[in-house]
Simulated scan of single mutants.
Amino acid sequence: MISRESLRDPPAAEGGTFMHLNAAGAGLMPASVVAAIKSHLDIEARRGAHWAAADARGAIEETRVLAARLMGVAPTHLAFGEQASRLWALALASMPLRRGDRILIARNDWGGNILNAVRRAAAVGAEVVRLPMTGAGRIDIEQAAALIDERTVAICASAVASSSGMRQPVEALGALSRPDTCLYFVDGAQAIGQFELTLPAASADIMVAPGRKWLRAGRGQAMMALSDRALHRLARPIIVDQSAGTWRPDDSFLSREDARRFEAWEFSAAGRLGLRASFQELDRIGLANVRAHNTEKLRCLGANLRGVPGLTVFEDEEAGAAFLTFQHASVPADDIVGEMAMRGIAIASVGLDHARWELEARGLERIVRVAPHVYSSDDDIGRFTEELGRLVKRV
């Protein structure tokens, strides 16, 4: 078992009274990630971006191997991009879609995924159907099975919704029988890096995740894992880059056979190397240790929050929540976030602009989200809840 001190490897920016409880937005980068990024930028400044990238080619390719291993696919089935939701949208846009086809999507999927599905369906006369939910806020697998038929070309869900820390039964959803032409999209943004989740285990065809959240890499790095079925169905990406295939003499374009057909030639080599360092840091700590630590902190946080008058916590931390969300009876969510920021405490809120379907179904407009990670301590949890209690009492 790794020591508590080693588990809490201090973030590069740690210092002063600042406290970070927003890993669901962007986790604090560990010192090793920042060092990897800075080191490569120094080389770029001395030798130029192209030469620096060429010298780091082996380490950059190792990033693909590590990402593929984490998501349970071969390196040939792993694509990188600058944003997980853009990779998701690129895959959806590249999928054959006709009038009368149906896309089944969870109401608590990421807002950008929902908007892209709605717009794509409207453009061709396809239909978007919301997956049924249980009263507890999880996808109802039995009712979902009844919706899948020969018209279903895509099923879409997030492993953990950004507006709720509750895990969704994406493995059970993927185990349902579906047409051979149906692709299963899983957004792993709030799961990869703290839960065991792979593309094969979820029986998914497309799985995306950013580096900046639970993996603690820098911004602008994301990955997409693809199944064999997805590579076959998405043979002609809607957008191509010269590096994604071959420009032939007759001006046709032959896409690569592997997942790199979705990549762009231009990317931040420094950021990619930072992502590599984040995978190495996760390997050092161990995914099981990350989850055990986060579970312990959420239990402490939940117990404290339930002692604050007028506050409702929406998740059961004993049921394996990814983070906690709450609402206060009289203090608006944005006021809580702003007041905490003035006290040097970073938390976040989620509103209708990002989770309209989910929040409207629950009769909410905005909730507060608190997401501790491996660098969070009991003292952090205690200080946050003390400051929140003072704020509520003052109001």
Rank of each mutant, 00 (worst) to 15 (best):
I206N: 00
A123R: 15
G58M: 10
P10C: 13
A346P: 02
A154K: 03
R102P: 06
V370H: 08
E82T: 11
E281P: 06
A59L: 10
Q242K: 09
V160F: 05
R256C: 14
D55H: 10
G15Q: 10
M166Y: 11
S330M: 12
G27Q: 08
A23Y: 06
A269Y: 06
L104Y: 05
A202D: 05
I347P: 07
P237R: 09
L92R: 09
G310K: 12
L41V: 04
A230P: 08
G389C: 07
A117T: 01
A146I: 00
M342E: 15
R390A: 14
Q327T: 11
L147H: 09
W357I: 00
R130G: 05
G389R: 14
E360T: 10
M29C: 12
F80V: 00
A74M: 08
D250V: 04
V308R: 09
Q327I: 09
E44P: 09
C182N: 05
R130I: 01
L231F: 03
H354F: 00
R47E: 15
F195H: 15
V128R: 05
E317G: 01
T325P: 00
A303D: 15
P372Q: 12
R366Y: 06
E257V: 07
A24Y: 01
S349A: 13
L254V: 11
I192P: 01
D251S: 14
R107V: 01
C182L: 02
V313C: 09
G382E: 13
G100H: 13
R102S: 14
F195M: 09
R98D: 13
E281N: 15
A31D: 10
I103N: 02
C182T: 00
D9K: 11
S162D: 07
I103G: 07
P96S: 12
G111N: 07
K297H: 08
E281T: 08
R248V: 03
R47S: 13
A74L: 14
L311V: 02
F195L: 14
M223E: 01
L298A: 08
V208R: 06
S203L: 03
M95D: 00
L231R: 06
V208S: 04
L273T: 08
M29H: 05
G135V: 03
A121N: 07
R248N: 15
S39Y: 08
A204W: 03
I206Q: 04
T385Q: 12
A31F: 05
Q190T: 06
A154W: 07
G310H: 11
L183T: 04
G344F: 11
N304R: 15
I155F: 06
W265M: 12
I192D: 04
A259D: 02
H77V: 00
C300Q: 13
T312I: 04
A259W: 03
T181I: 00
R107N: 04
G81K: 06
S39P: 04
P132L: 09
S177Q: 15
R306C: 10
V368A: 01
Q143L: 11
V368Y: 06
T63L: 01
G188H: 01
M207A: 05
E5N: 13
L254M: 10
V33D: 02
P10S: 14
H328S: 10
L388R: 11
A259C: 05
S3R: 13
R167N: 11
I105V: 12
E127L: 07
R98F: 11
G307T: 02
D353M: 05
A346R: 13
V308K: 05
H328D: 02
A259I: 04
M166G: 08
S6D: 13
